[in-house]
Write a protein that binds this DNA or RNA. Structure first.
Lengths: 348, 348
DNA sequence: TTTCAACACGAAAACGTTTTCGAAGCGTTA
DNA sequence: TAACGCTTCGAAAACGTTTTCGTGTTGAAA
């Protein structure tokens, strides 16, 4: 690998000082036009590029935001990143992304490497591994070290920092209410285990919708999926559980999945068993992604405006980065939207 | 924002020199156990974290690989990143990801910021914007500056650097041959415009399969989609074009889409018009992603082992980073795999 | 001729780290 | 007592920048 050109080399070759070269390249009026031209020409010849890392050292700022997400395939996270990117760029910040793959160790590793110099602050959604372990020392350390963090999506109440989350409870309740209002009385719920905060809240919304409408809720209709290490394989056991569920409970007339894949899998299993969607069973999912749009029939979903989440997160982070005084931490709660498609026959 | 603790601060507080602190924290035997313990305790108290950026300055290496991809929602790119990550980590390298969003300007911006200090080398797939513009000055500059680049997926013949690509031609030909062998005689092709290299090659494979089997090919059955700025909206015109195509050519008995969404859209339009899949029309897509698996019926696809692509790319990059002499550039061609699902009735 | 401003440039510090080399202090040995 | 070796630590350079504060030269004004 060739080594990169530096100010020093240019200065030596041209018989001027380093400062002169620096000023000339920056277009300072201090340097004569003649010298400036000469230096610029030579710099171009050597393919000179300023070394930002040295700059960061000097400025003690990198103007870069680090984003750590658990998964990259999720359409939701892609949308959030999209939002983060566009808004951060507007404000003159660069964005770097790293993946935790839902693993605690990887999350710690990524935070460590990024925290030590590369970035000014974090926007992150914690991995399932971390949630399960309930070990947040790496986050505490980072915050104590003076680097601001904005958490999004998955909540950790005991950590005090800025947060931007979605109103999972109301989003979910609204969806289940819509099912109830359009006639469903036996709604199956496909959810995660309770340690995943968003899964828990969406489950609560499901329960609350029943209570609100005075509909008895049968807890046999709730299916909790263990997917700490989510992969295609977890779908196989899920499918058989679902088949069993439908066989035991032919009265089921609605399905609510706390994410896209769960809802979709529920729909597919029902279809295979001869149910018509939305004729016999109506289906709603949480998180509106490509799968919902391309499913057959397309899936009614609770949309989480990921773009806005990203935007809010960046706003909070930059405010903290660029202000000296340390105000109280905020938690921004964003509302969802119910997007109707072919898998339901809602009235309005 | 609080400022971060440094070696200097610790040294001053404890009345020792910076070198002593550095050595103590690194566990050098030079420093007495007593002093070491004292320094470490104090460092922990201050939440000290070494500033890697200063280190990179010294070492002139960051041990970090920069990855730039056009889109994050693509399942294919996610898989490649997955591969890059796991293998890079094994070799002690960190991975940073940036997005170009298929935009030339954003690609240039990202390369510029990353190239100047943050990383040792690039793995990238160029944006459609860049391909259309045919402007590669930013890549040339980076290479000339001495920073190695590995290109993947989308080819640029005129740039000399390491590349890892998929055998689009043979993958596509194989898929179309399979269609022909199972009886199709009028296969519609949904492809991109020719400036997208992979689209072009897949089109060539489609044509070659016909020639090889002596089947006349009707160019009216080829639909070229303009999707430079790909969004959900481009699907609407595509759908009407497809509808028109099927109306004009009721003889169509097969569909080959050069990507997942094209194939899927073709399938959906056909289904809406009353065709049965795979009874009346068989469908094959390129790029095997979540959509293929979850479609109804699920989609037969040409799978591009993204994980392997990532692995190969990392291997090539690290080899170049860690060896002094500059060998000739290589291009690694990976083969695809035809994954059969419900949208076809292949014989074997 | 003296004085002074304008102009063009250079020296050096600073950012945070690692590492090499040297040096002080102290005990041991001949 | 002198020589030596070990232990423990500090000074300083280096990485590539930017920026502040000189300093020397020139030309013109007094």
């Amino acid at each position: 690998m060739k080594k990169k050109a530096t100010l020093k080399e240019i200065a030596n070759e041209l018989g001027v000082s380093i400062s002169t070269v620096s000023k000339a390249l920056k277009g300072s009026t201090e340097i004569s036009e003649e010298t400036t031209d000469k230096i610029r020409a030579f710099a171009k010849l050597l393919h000179y590029r300023p070394n930002n890392i040295a700059l960061s050292l000097k400025n003690r700022r990198t103007k870069t935001i680090g984003v750590i997400i658990p998964e990259i395939v999720h359409h939701f996270f892609s949308e959030v990143i999209q939002g983060i990117e566009t808004y951060a760029n507007e404000r003159g910040y660069n964005v770097l992304i790293a993946l935790s793959n839902e693993s605690f160790d990887k999350e710690v590793f990524n935070i460590d490497t990024l925290a030590s110099g590369s970035i000014d602050g974090f926007i992150l959604s914690v991995s399932k591994g971390t949630l399960k372990r309930q070990d947040f020392h790496h986050l505490y350390e980072t915050i104590n070290q003076g680097m601001p963090i904005v958490l999004f999506d998955r909540q950790i109440p005991e950590i005090s920092c800025d947060k931007v989350i979605v109103d999972d409870f109301r989003g979910s309740r609204r969806a289940v209410e819509a099912l109830i209002e359009s006639g469903c009385r036996h709604i199956a719920l496909i959810t995660t285990e309770d340690y995943v905060d968003v899964g828990f809240k969406r489950t609560q919304g499901y329960l609350d919708a029943h209570k609100k409408h005075g509909i008895p809720q049968n807890s046999d209709l709730i299916l909790k999926v263990n997917d700490q290490f989510f992969s295609e394989d977890t779908l196989i056991p899920l499918q058989s559980s679902l088949k069993e569920l439908f066989l035991l409970h032919p009265e089921i007339d609605g399905i609510f999945g706390v994410n896209e894949v769960y809802a979709l899998t529920g729909m597919k299993v029902a279809q295979r068993m001869g149910y018509s969607i939305p004729g016999d069973i109506q289906v709603v999912g949480f998180t509106d992604g490509v799968l919902s749009k391309h499913a057959h029939p397309s899936l009614t979903s609770v949309k989480q405006h990921g773009h806005n989440i990203g935007r809010e997160a960046v706003q909070m982070l930059i405010r903290r980065l660029e202000s000296e005084e340390e105000g109280p931490f905020e938690t921004k709660v964003l509302q969802t939207e119910l997007v109707q498609r072919e898998s339901t026959r809602f009235i309005n």
